[in-house]
Nucleic acid binder design. Structure first.
Lengths: 215, 215
DNA sequence: AAAGTTCTTGACCAAACGGTCAGGAAACCG
DNA sequence: CGGTTTCCTGACCGTTTGGTCAAGAACTTT
């Protein structure tokens, strides 16, 4: 009775090992890039022999693809906005959500950025399917807001690019930001400051003022 | 007399070869990352045997360092703003200049982004010396504008980050933007559109309106 | 034209890479 | 328990990598 014979012990182990490998792979791919990452480094960080990594993920590319698609799904699920909200609420909440993602998932953001920067050789299909559809949906929402006179008539597409660029910058260029912050990571207060600054510029820029603040 | 025996023929050749190698290296590093780039690929693209590359640049790291520092210098020289201009003129021109750089030097921008994203292992000294100084100077300029009441009191630092992020996004994520543009590169008109959209959001966002346009 | 310097290059390493495999250990199931 | 499947891993392999080298070609200088 000391060792409770849990049914599905193997299944648990499998999940844990896959999780550990994906966790390690995300970090190694983020720090070294796809080409610079080695299966040995991933194995060491995951605390498993290299051959075991290949038992769960047959090739480096398969492992990488899993890492990238995980990130993409997190990003899609965690951050969206729809037409039920006002522009100030919708875009404000989107900025908050994406800034939080940059803080909690910086490695993932960097893997994604690296992949896109190098021409998206592995996940081009994601771009062409899911991302195009998502983007066109959001452009429609913003255009509706404009048509209803709820915000300035700026190009929805370029507004989206500005939002992506700015929020992800805090993850992708986190090292540069840290260097410009005396080598220290941003504190809680500094993250709040960053979020508020971005929201102040963008919400004013599109002609909606934060309803909870006078100027 | 058919072949004019130019003195310094070797010197010319040296310059041309170094130029060709740096040109090729910038592209290969941008497309494959530091780890994924191979000296053989660079050699092939430069049209020289691999051993010759090593004659001009002893190691891969030395070549890479030259590429990155070239980019950094172009970026510093081509884009700046000082207090002689108004915020609208200064920041507007800065956006124009950086957007143009993103269009004309996308590879360089990507190499720089990759390097910073992976923790700046090679050019950390640049970040700590030149970039910190440059940034603090620009923050001072913006703070002066704010103190004189010429623009809204937003955080100069986060405004800079937003400007860097947004303008460089058009180079670093150019592939994604292209995919979202039916696989076509942005046309001249679309680039103008992008520049105007960014300027419209940012200049309105900081409380200065483009003097040459009514709302 | 001879001597000296710089440049060029095919052939060649040692090291590191992604991936394989056989055979043993552990867990599951009847 | 015994049979079957799943999991684990040290040793190994072919390939590619960054880098070297020696011998010759090209250019410069005297």
């Amino acid at each position: 009775m000391a060792t409770t014979p849990i049914s599905g012990r193997q299944k648990n182990r499998r999940q844990e090992n896959e999780k550990a490998i994906l966790w390690a792979a995300e970090r190694v791919f983020a720090e070294a890039g796809y080409g610079g990452a080695t299966m040995q480094l991933i194995a060491d960080l995951a605390g498993l022999p290299k051959a075991n990594i290949h038992y769960y993920f047959q090739t480096k590319e398969e492992l990488y693809r899993r890492v990238v698609s995980n990130i993409f799904n997190i990003w899609l699920e965690a951050a969206a906005f729809d037409e039920t909200a006002s522009p100030a609420e919708g875009i404000g909440a989107y900025i908050d959500a994406k800034m939080d993602l940059s803080r909690t998932h910086p490695h993932g953001s960097r893997v994604w950025a690296s992949e896109v920067m190098h021409g998206a050789p592995i996940i081009q299909d994601y771009l062409e399917d899911v991302l195009i559809e998502w983007t066109e949906g959001r452009i429609g929402v913003i255009q509706n807001w404009i048509d209803q006179g709820l915000m300035n008539p700026i190009s929805p597409r370029h507004l989206l690019y500005l939002l992506w660029a700015t929020t992800q910058h805090y993850a992708d260029f986190g090292h540069q930001i840290e260097t410009l912050n005396n080598g220290e990571p941003l504190s809680d207060a500094q993250w709040e400051d960053a979020k508020n600054s971005v929201k102040a510029i963008v919400l004013t820029g599109i002609g909606v003022t934060d309803p909870h603040r006078g100027v």
